[in-house]
Design a protein around this nucleic acid. Structure first.
Length: 460
RNA sequence: GGCCUGAUGGCGGAGUGGUGACGCAGCGGACUGCAAAUCCGUCCACCCCGGUUCGAUUCCGGGUCAGGCCUCCA
């Protein structure tokens, strides 16, 4: 199986061949840092982290460049700063750090680059100037607007025409626009707002221009893959293509467009404006990051995923099962690093078919438990470890997983009780053994007797 | 109104023109002092109506329902 991805623009799955296999480029729209990111924001972070890991596996760690931006210019940031009486940088610094820690806890590798909008204002104004020079942008009422009618391919990504947009317009259109779909590249600052000097007056950039400017600066055009949430297809990515191509006389912008589906709750999109969100931060207090990652990858990335407590519980149980295998059949040093099994790679290379990849993990677990020889069991366990690690799982020892953050005192207490119980069992004092087990159960500890010894785990 | 997705068993979620993935839960059994973990077995599905076909859950048409974008949005 060769690597293929579904391309939103082509509307089909296509073989993925990077422009330069020594320099594969991936850009993903990150978050606007004005408050805690919700678990829906984590889906693209995790999905494209998986893509990043897969590309590194295929093309080599040093041959993949991954940029995930941080938007730190925005109305909501301004509002938050105003509400709290602080500088916008206080807001953006705080929530950018929280976001980075949160997604790291979900097993996401640090991207190669995390460019910030405020660090690329000159590149944005240069791009806007290029658009004006080429007749693709115009100034009106203090704004600079992109002239959508100057770009014949406008609407191709989202499958709509300028006429459709006229017909479907639901909102008041600013009268200074030549066409309702024209979008802002630069807007004048209101009093008190952060602003930057530019050839078009003091102001700040529109939302779309930042990604185009940062892509060009950090990765160079065209990039191989541009990713983001499904809701960014229109207008954000449509506008990126328009400005990105027009600034360079129609040159290619991104070779593949990938979009992840939404998280839903009661079948409804999880969204801050609806208010039905769960923050990553809060969820991490309730469940291990790996379990949340498992949950996010349990459905195919383009499908909607219903988010609920049962999903998290099931994900944790799935990892319990696999960590149990790793604990019982610890991969021998000589068996590690093991090859990632073909079946797992096949699944991932087929447009990140994670449900199939996860099913293959269970198949490896079954082999590890049932193979006739210990060598085969250990080999299967090593493969499981390799496959899981490729996907960003098994970042801790089984012991650490099952004892889930227990402190030394607690562990010592549990070990002492288990030792007492072992003595009771040896003298066949079953009543005492069961009493001690009940005591452990009360501590939320589950005891697992086996031929080779006793282990324990915290119950979910 | 325009554009666009999707509807699979108790739950999550793949896939396929004909032997009904995988996981969780349930049930029966093995193992165990008893459990747990593990193993073996097992119950349960393809929204509705037409069409194509020897045969459709899978292809085509229509319908119903749900959801998304068109405004900030992962």
């Amino acid at each position: 199986m060769s690597l293929s991805f579904y391309d939103t623009l082509a509307r089909e799955k296509r073989a993925f061949v990077p422009a330069d296999p020594d320099r594969v480029t991936l850009y993903v729209c990150g978050v606007t840092v004005y408050s805690y990111a919700h678990i829906g924001n984590a889906r693209p972070a995790v999905v494209f982290d998986l893509a990043f890991r897969l590309l590194r596996h295929i093309f080599g760690e040093d041959h993949v460049l991954y940029a995930r931006n941080i938007t730190d210019v925005d109305d909501k940031i301004n509002q938050a700063a105003l509400d709290q009486g602080v500088d916008i940088s206080a807001i953006t610094t705080k929530f950018a750090e929280i976001y980075q820690a949160d997604v790291a806890a979900l097993g996401c590798l640090p991207p190669t680059f995390e460019p910030r909008a405020t660090a690329h204002i000159p590149q944005m104004t240069a791009m806007i100037s290029a658009l004006i020079e080429r007749g693709h942008a115009y100034q009106a009422d203090g704004h600079v607007l992109f002239d959508t009618q100057s770009f014949p391919d406008y609407g191709k990504l989202s499958g709509r025409s300028l006429d459709d947009l006229l017909a479907g317009a639901r909102v008041e259109v600013a009268d200074y626009k030549r066409h309702p779909a024209d979008f802002v590249l630069w807007k004048p600052a209101k009093p008190g707002e952060p602003s930057w000097q530019s050839p078009f007056g003091a102001g700040r950039p529109g939302w779309h221009i930042e990604c185009s400017a940062m892509i060009e600066t950090v990765l160079g055009l065209p990039i191989d893959i541009h990713g983001g949430g499904h809701d960014l297809i229109f207008p954000h990515h449509e506008n990126e293509i328009a400005q990105g191509r027009c600034a360079h006389d129609g040159a290619d912008y991104a070779r593949v467009w990938m979009h992840n589906g939404f998280l839903t709750q009661s079948a409804e999109k999880m969204s801050k404006s609806i208010g039905n969100i769960r923050t990553i931060h809060d969820l991490l207090a309730e469940a291990p990051g790996e379990a949340l990652r498992w949950a996010l990858l349990s459905a195919h990335y383009r499908a909607p995923l219903e988010w609920n407590p049962e999903l998290i519980a099931q994900s944790k149980r799935a990892l319990d099962r696999l960590y149990g295998v790793l604990q019982r059949w610890p991969a021998a040093p000589e068996a590690w690093p093991a090859q990632v099994p073909e079946a797992v790679l096949d699944a991932l290379e087929d447009d990140l078919a994670t449900p199939r990849a996860l099913a293959e993990l269970f198949a490896l677990a079954r082999i590890a438990e049932t193979a006739p020889t210990e060598a085969e069991k250990l080999a299967a366990s090593a493969s499981l470890l390799a496959a899981g690690r490729l996907m960003g799982f098994f970042n801790q020892t089984p012991l650490a997983w099952f004892s889930g953050g227990s402190d030394a005192d607690f562990t010592a207490k549990v070990e002492a009780l288990i030792s007492e119980r072992a003595q009771a069992r040896q003298s066949k004092n079953w009543a005492e053994a069961d009493r001690i087990r009940a005591e452990l159960t009360a501590l939320n500890v589950e005891v697992l007797d086996s031929a080779t010894g006793v282990s324990w785990r915290l119950k979910g």
